[in-house]
């Protein structure tokens, strides 16, 4: 136990660098994923057959293939035509992946808002897009917060796969340090603690947000 504690302390600085990279990867990929998710959610509810099919195809491809395969295709596959830096290969890969799940979360939330809300807005002379922006999306977002929080947690943990294309994010750091010392376990325990802490903080933040948004209930 004393040995683990000293490893934990000694590795702190290196892990903080990994932590910083993990956070950057997570935030960048989740921001892109929200844009992608919103876009495909709109396609899904557009009632235009072609657009719906495009969205379905995207969601099918993402859900139908492992994330690691998607990241490898982006990094190694696309490297043939365009050398994409590791950070962006990982970020785009993660965003492309989370985007599909977020699209489904947003679509479900939008469709859970009753037709009466849209009708009331339209009856006041609001356009379709204004109704979506001012009436439907704010309510849908509120309803989606728990699921989105969950998806963000998954996204943060999935960012560990970026280590497979050479990024020294949290998991990459633990793997490297483990192999250098021929003693993996303490480093994996250490990295597990860091992930648990990130997820704990995010969980608390999401709960706070839910409470704040619940003032109108």
């Amino acid at each position: 136990m004393g040995e683990f504690f000293s490893i934990f302390i000694d590795s702190f600085d290196v892990f903080m660098e990994g932590m910083w990279l993990t956070l950057r990867l997570s935030v960048v990929s989740l921001l892109i994923a929200i844009v992608i998710g919103l876009f495909f959610a709109m396609l899904k509810i557009s009632r235009v057959k072609v657009l719906e099919i495009i969205a379905d195809l995207y969601i099918w491809i993402v859900r139908g293939t492992p994330l690691i395969v998607q990241i490898f295709i982006l990094f190694y596959g696309l490297a043939e035509i365009w050398l994409i830096p590791e950070f962006w290969a990982a970020s785009i890969g993660l965003a492309f992946h989370s985007g599909a799940y977020i699209a489904e979360i947003i679509r479900g939330a939008i469709q859970s808002i009753t037709k009466g809300q849209t009708e009331a807005a339209r009856s006041l002379g609001m356009s379709r897009s204004l109704t979506m922006r001012r009436v439907v999306l704010p309510q849908a977002f509120r309803r989606a917060v728990p699921s989105l929080g969950n998806q963000f947690i998954i996204g943060i943990k999935d960012s560990s796969l970026a280590s497979f294309i050479g990024l020294q994010e949290l998991f990459g750091v633990s793997n490297t340090m483990g192999s250098n010392s021929f003693d993996y376990l303490p480093y994996f325990f250490t990295v597990a603690i860091y992930y648990l802490l990130i997820v704990l903080i995010l969980t608390i933040a999401v709960n706070q947000l839910e409470k704040k948004l619940a003032v109108s209930d």
């Binding site: 009708e119 009331a120 807005a121 002379g125 309510q139």
Partner: peptide, 22 residues
């Protein structure tokens, strides 16, 4: 129609107030 609807207000059976607004 958005212009037309501005002249014709409507009140619904189930109110349809915007719950996220005061």
């Amino acid at each position: 129609l958005n212009k037309v609807r501005q002249k014709v207000g409507m009140v619904f059976q189930h109110f349809n107030l915007f719950p996220h607004k005061t």
